[in-house]
Every structure is written in structure tokens, then in C-alpha cells.
Design a protein around this nucleic acid. Structure first.
Lengths: 114, 114
DNA sequence: TTCTCATCTGAGTAATTATTAAAATGAGAA
DNA sequence: TTCTCATTTTAATAATTACTCAGATGAGAA
């Protein structure tokens, strides 16, 4: 098949990106980290303020071990950060992009439901 | 452990959401759909204009069959839509939220790399 | 020190998913 | 009709992943 009008246009843009492979890989991993019901609820909960592991576990009715596993994947992609207070680790969102991501995603979902 | 200050606050907000389970489920599925290197590149390519399956396959050096599979998951979540022109199906982004999602995600990734 | 407890880690299993290959549509051309 | 070809589908395999359980840190209290 002959290339469609947009093909050559997009192709040149893709070639011009250089080392964009790493960028798309990281972008996909970021979305994948949010692509789990438990993790996206963890992030949503943290938009209301910092919480410790036990709190999140009680909130979502999931074991603290499972929450800890999820928090590691979120931490690895710098979606959340933590601070220690005595024996307790308080988790919070790492930057303001995360909350915007959730909001933007929610708007799409609201359109889906209607 | 006693509930931390934010726990009761977030808990009441969670209870007040009602049937939010479905919302979070769909939100997670949406992010998961974008959480794949090939699919996120498909969506990125479509931000530059509509493309057919063969074009996308050539662009990303992936088989047309694999692209078709990915397009179905994107279509199921209404991230992309299609129109037919003779034998060719042209795919494009379903609404403007999708492009914003990608931009917001990219900004986070740029911070990651630096 | 010993005890408590919030959190993390490692292994194991079940479930999900991406990819490929081959066959099947399905629409237009000959 | 028959042929072509863009796209979809089905089945199979390989890889990834979420969860649980058991044990290990690690920091503060006693």
C-alpha cells in the first residue's frame, strides 16, 4: 500500500526525536504503574494528604504487604515519596503532575460512563 | 496503630464516593491501556493526525496483526476511533483528553530523566 | 538488652498479557 | 464471479504481574 498523507509527516517527526525510545519506555512504565486498581486508589488517596502504609491498607482493605509492594513500584517511578516519623513512613505524591494526571484521566472516564 | 490525622479525613471522602469502584476500575484500565511502549507510541503518533493500521505498523516496525490487537484495546476504552475510506481504516484519537494525558505524563518523565 | 510493631523482602503460585503465526473477513478491483 | 489486500480474529506460547505467606529488617519503648 502507498503511504497515506500523514505517514511521511509523522515518520519525519519520529526520526527527529532521536533517543525518544527511552522516553516512551518510561512513559509507558509510568502509565502502567497507574494501571492497577489498587495503585490508582493509593495515588488518589494520597491526593488528600500523606498517609502511612497501615492507613492505606485499612483504607483499601488490602494487606500491608501488598500495599508495600505497590508503593515500591510507585516509588521506583517517583510517583510517590516518603518521610519517616519515628517508626512510621508517611507517603505522599512526589510532584504536582501526578494529581493532574489523575484528574485528566478521570475526566475521560466520566465521559466513558455517561 | 492509631489512625493518623489524614486517615479519618480520607476515609470519609472514600465512603462518600458511593459507586466509585467502577470509576477506579475504568481509570486503571485506561492507564493500563497506555502502559505499553507500543500502544503509547501508537497514541503519540495519532496526535499528529489519523493513520491506518499499515502505516502504524511500518512506523513502529511492528506487525500489522500486533498493531490491530493493540488498537482493539485502545478502541475498547475509547482512546481511539476509526473511519473507513475504501479498504483502509483510519484511526485517530477519540477526544482531546487523550493528548493532554500524554503531555502531562511526558512532563513527569522529563523530570525523571533530568 | 529484649520486646513491640510498622514496614519491607523473598519465594511461590495463579492469573493476565504481548506476541506470533495462520486462517478468516470483507471491501473493492479485474 | 475471482483475485487482491487491508484488517481482524483465533489459538498457542512466553513473559509479566499481583497476591499471599513467611521471615527479615529496623527503630523506639521498656
Amino acid at each position: 500500500m502507498n503511504p497515506t498523507p500523514n505517514f511521511t509527516k509523522v515518520e519525519s517527526q519520529l526520526r527527529g526525536q532521536g533517543d525518544s525510545v527511552q522516553r516512551f519506555q518510561l512513559l509507558a512504565e509510568t502509565f502502567k504503574a497507574l494501571g492497577d486498581p489498587t495503585r490508582v486508589q493509593i495515588v488518589w488517596a494520597l491526593t488528600h494528604g500523606e498517609l502511612c502504609v497501615t492507613d492505606i491498607a485499612n483504607l483499601l482493605s488490602v494487606s500491608a504487604s501488598a500495599i508495600s509492594h505497590h508503593l515500591r513500584t510507585l516509588r521506583n517511578l517517583r510517583l510517590v515519596k516518603s518521610r519517616r516519623d519515628h517508626r512510621t513512613l508517611f507517603y505522599s505524591l512526589d510532584d504536582e503532575h501526578i494529581e493532574h494526571l489523575l484528574e485528566e484521566g478521570m475526566e475521560h472516564v466520566e465521559d466513558l460512563i455517561l
